[in-house]
Design a protein around this nucleic acid. Sequence first.
DNA 1: GAGCCTTAGTTCAAGTCGCGAACGAAGGTA
DNA 2: TACCTTCGTTCGCGACTTGAACTAAGGCTC
Lengths: 415, 415
Amino acid sequence: MDRRRATVRDLRRQNRSGLLGTLFFHGPLSRAELGARTGLSAATVSTLTAELVEDRLVVEAGQVDSDGGRPRALLRVDPGYAHVVGVDLGETGARVELFDLGLRRVATAERPMPSTRPDPADVVRSVVAAVRDLLAESGVDDLLGVGVGVPGTVEDGSRVHAQTIGWDGVPLAELLRAGGLRWPLHLENGAKTLGQAEMWFGAGAGAEHAVIALLGSGVGAMVVTDGATYRGATSSAGEWGHTTLVYGGRGCRCGARGCLEAYVGAEGILDRYRRARSGKPVPRGDDPARLAFLLDAAERSPAAAAVLDETVGYLGAGIGNLVNLFNPERIVLGGWAGLLLGARLLPRIRAATAEHALRHAFERTSIELCTLGPDAVAVGAATLPVAALLARGADPRAHRAAGGRGVLGTTASPA
Amino acid sequence: MDRRRATVRDLRRQNRSGLLGTLFFHGPLSRAELGARTGLSAATVSTLTAELVEDRLVVEAGQVDSDGGRPRALLRVDPGYAHVVGVDLGETGARVELFDLGLRRVATAERPMPSTRPDPADVVRSVVAAVRDLLAESGVDDLLGVGVGVPGTVEDGSRVHAQTIGWDGVPLAELLRAGGLRWPLHLENGAKTLGQAEMWFGAGAGAEHAVIALLGSGVGAMVVTDGATYRGATSSAGEWGHTTLVYGGRGCRCGARGCLEAYVGAEGILDRYRRARSGKPVPRGDDPARLAFLLDAAERSPAAAAVLDETVGYLGAGIGNLVNLFNPERIVLGGWAGLLLGARLLPRIRAATAEHALRHAFERTSIELCTLGPDAVAVGAATLPVAALLARGADPRAHRAAGGRGVLGTTASPA
DNA sequence: GAGCCTTAGTTCAAGTCGCGAACGAAGGTA
DNA sequence: TACCTTCGTTCGCGACTTGAACTAAGGCTC
């Protein structure tokens, strides 16, 4: 099979999709503004919007005076048209959230993981029950779809490989469906859904080429090219954390040596700090608390300052690699560790990147921090069913055709 | 501007483009086979091919018996429909080649560079004269377009930055046009055009996600995602050679430390060999000869073997980074140094890559050698006007609309 | 306040397009 | 010679976008 054929109806769907998308991301807009933005003629905008209004996807939203002519009638996507659920399946617990179509949070539920290596069946039961609770509590009885961010990679949109919780090839989509989730399911790596959220509503908004670089215990990246998430041949692209940065260097939990993650992942940073203190443990609490301690200590402790200096250098080189390879217009640093570091060190990280990236590309790249915080995995997951709706132009006939399989690889950013 | 609108005529062009593309890459084919491959109905294939035949782009190419039915009439793109010129603007000389539409070489001319830091005006004069000579000698009087591979980066499809020959922002496209090249011009980095040639006719053929990794004096990569060349925000993506592999390591000509190029670029390898021989110069000739000497010496000299061992390790780590970040289905190793190394060391390079890449992605990636040799830059450059023709579906009306500007970012591989 | 201007949005005829069905073409086979 | 199989073409149909004409709804001027 070479190419998709294009029929005259695909045209309609494509234009409907474009219209709906601009309305979603830039609305409210008048019909005239819609025409200007999409390039469609006034006639087409008129018939298409009439159709969307009849389908209850779009509603009128007030009027705006024009300079001495007929006032503009504003249109916007009706947030109440449908609801979506986003699930953040993390290593310590599941967060299940209900959103309206505008991705405003309606209700939230949290469920702890039954163990550190949980039985998929238990997790599925817990998540399905949480979804039911949310729907009952909010009086919502139908969903557009359910997006799930998982702590690992997703194969064929269905099977989950997540080393840290001991899942290897768990057919999560089927299990959730069998458990009673009868709506379209969209599975995706949690870091990628977090990145998706940043692309839609955070620091990545408007960028066509961006890399969301996430630092937590692990290190990963989500690459957006031409406005679409870059997945590679088997959806495992963006494993930035396990690129070699220090050939022959520190051992990494992946088995290799010198991975970026071993240096700028939270555990790597704290371990280097521990060694700098000659083995004395880093005091107090969990990893985030310890990293914060390190950042504070740097003001008075040369050892701590040196560890941070090194970290900035490593991170600059790692980000420089992203700049050189992907030539993005924007790099967005996030993850809980990334945000802690970035809050204090961003200017120095930028300077370190400049030392390692090629001048031309670096000068055209901005480096910023995530704006949504680490809890955005669930929103990001919830964007997936919405993205699918926008991509198919909310054509009711295309709904069944998609058959519950997610439409991936589309609309990573409001273009 | 959000999206391009789609009119009913774009439909036609799109389908025409698809048909022409499958015919170009997979022809000759019968109309029935075309329908099966493109998904178009027999009726549409019939009218579209009739149009293409009338436009003289497509010709009949014999018949094939079918099992007791009407024989298939085969169609193929007419190689004589148009000609294209590919220019390989290298550091030591320019190679100008004339091709037919099937990219069979018709004539060749070579011109040495006037100096190591040539005046753009001289180069332009020389290239334009060579093009005229080729046309006169072959009796060709019109061209579909001219593709130029340059030893540097291209900004906005027009300005060339090439450090090694001292060009910084040379408006090459305008100069060539002013010099008398009145056909559509397509400028592109030479490594990328070489990669393009491999994607169309070499080891990359058929791959949707691939990385062409090129080792010469310098080191670069061309990334193909979803069948299209990945350029990034400002067309400088793929600078693999200047990613940091050995943090704080050897100095690189780019000014940074520890770049991959400083270790696996030919100069880097030879310099390491020289040091291993305690400063004794590596004997005989130019760099390719020296590298070949090193490869031979490895069979008896432990010092040479050690240098190669290290090289394999560094290269494995570098390729592993490509695997982890891009998750390609295929990595194609080329460039003169890459081919020399690969010819003897490919199995070991694969093994070294396995040590650094994540298992999942590595197992789904094949690592192969370029099959076209280092002279394919000119063919690759010549693919650019052809790709533009295929992309616009050879619609005569779209010809003027493109206005001589190349249609880039399309059709990197026969999908 | 009547008439006119400006801007927003709708309706309609016209021109395209792809597709399914019917049909013609071209060979083999009984 | 009649029939079958496969390939390719023709034609009517429904669907699509668009420009132009037209209606809607306000401000402005005299």
